[in-house]
Structure formats: structure tokens, C-alpha cells
Amino acid sequence: MSAYRTGDPLDRRRFLTAAALHGATVVGATALGAVDADAAFAAPMRPLDPAVAESAFAEGRITAINDDVLAVAGSYGDHSRVRVTGATSVWKARATTAADIETGDGLYARGVPLPDGTLAADAVWVNIVNLHATIRGIEKTRLHLAHGRHEIVGNLMAETTSAAYGTASPTADLSGLTIGQSAQVLGAWRPSDGSVDLVRVAVAPGAGRRR
């Protein structure tokens, strides 16, 4: 297990790749619950295993970071403390690590309440936004979006931003987006300038055919 123990992330990945490819192959398709960024907005996940405590949630702005505990001021005046561990997944426009979390960020966390009052986070989504908008302008590096009366700049991220046309699978091909389209936008808000790093732009079916 020396490769697993090593601190070199490439060695570790190599080891994990070998482990993954030696795993059992399961073929078949079925519709099940999701744990991706969409799940942050879904109904609370009920564990199948009765021994596992039901998931708890926390949301709000991070007011302080003390080692691995995030102090969170909730939107409704409540306060919570969220503990991030090595097993916690951190999403900030992409899968990342706790080092990317900053004071002032918005947070949505799912986890298990501990006796000391903290929430041991299983998953943390940082600055996640999911909004309905209209595409008002298209440039090489960004989209101009209108959400209600608010103008929002959406930053396109190479290798990350995907488009979903109707019910089709997400694609890296953004050439089907047109001005005037309504879009469901999933992304990460940037507190510094109020823009949104776009992760997925979902538009109506067939809309991508027009130019």
C-alpha cells in the first residue's frame, strides 16, 4: 500500500485508477437519486440504511474559518458550524478541496449533526447558484444574462462549462446558444465582482438549431 500512503497526488491517482479498474463491472441503466450539484437543490436525501442518521443541512455566508470548522451565518438569522473533513466533497464550480473555501463565500452543506453541535459535512457546495435567466449577449469568454431586472455576467470556463439542449446530455458545444433564449443556469457566484462562473447552461429543446 505504499503508493496509497504516498503524498504524491499522481502516485495516489495511479493507485486509485488501478483499484477502480479492478473493480466489479456493473452493466445496466436505471434512474436513481443524484449527488451532483443539482442535488444541492433537490429534496433532502433519505438514507436507505436505517443505522445512518438522517442528513442535515446548513446554508448561509461563511463568517469565519477556524481550521476545519466553518462558521456560517444563515439567511434567516440562524448560525451553524460546519466541519469539513478529508472525506467531505467540496464543489466550487468544480470538484476542489477545502483550501479553496474563503470567508465571505456562500455555502450549502449536507452532513451529519455531531454531539458537539457542528455539522460533519459530507458535501459542501460553495457559492452555488441555480437561476432562470435570459441570454442577452454572447462573447468569447462570457455570456450576458438577465435574471429578472438584474444583469449578470456569466464567465465561460474552458473544459468546465457545458450546455444542455433540451433533454440531451450535456455537451461542451456552446455554439447552439442564441441571444434571446431562456436558460436555466447552474454555476458558482463570485462574491468579488458579482459575476457567475458558468457550469451548465440548459436551454429549451431544439433551440440550439437556430443561429
Binding site: G33, V35, D36, P47, L48, D49, A87, S89
Partner: peptide, 9 residues
């Protein structure tokens, strides 16, 4: 799925 607790790490 009953083993998985986190989102994508």
C-alpha cells in the same frame, strides 16, 4: 449508493 456519502470528490 447506500455506501456513498459525499458528492464528487
Amino acid at each position: 449508493s447506500r455506501v456513498v456519502r459525499s458528492a464528487l470528490l
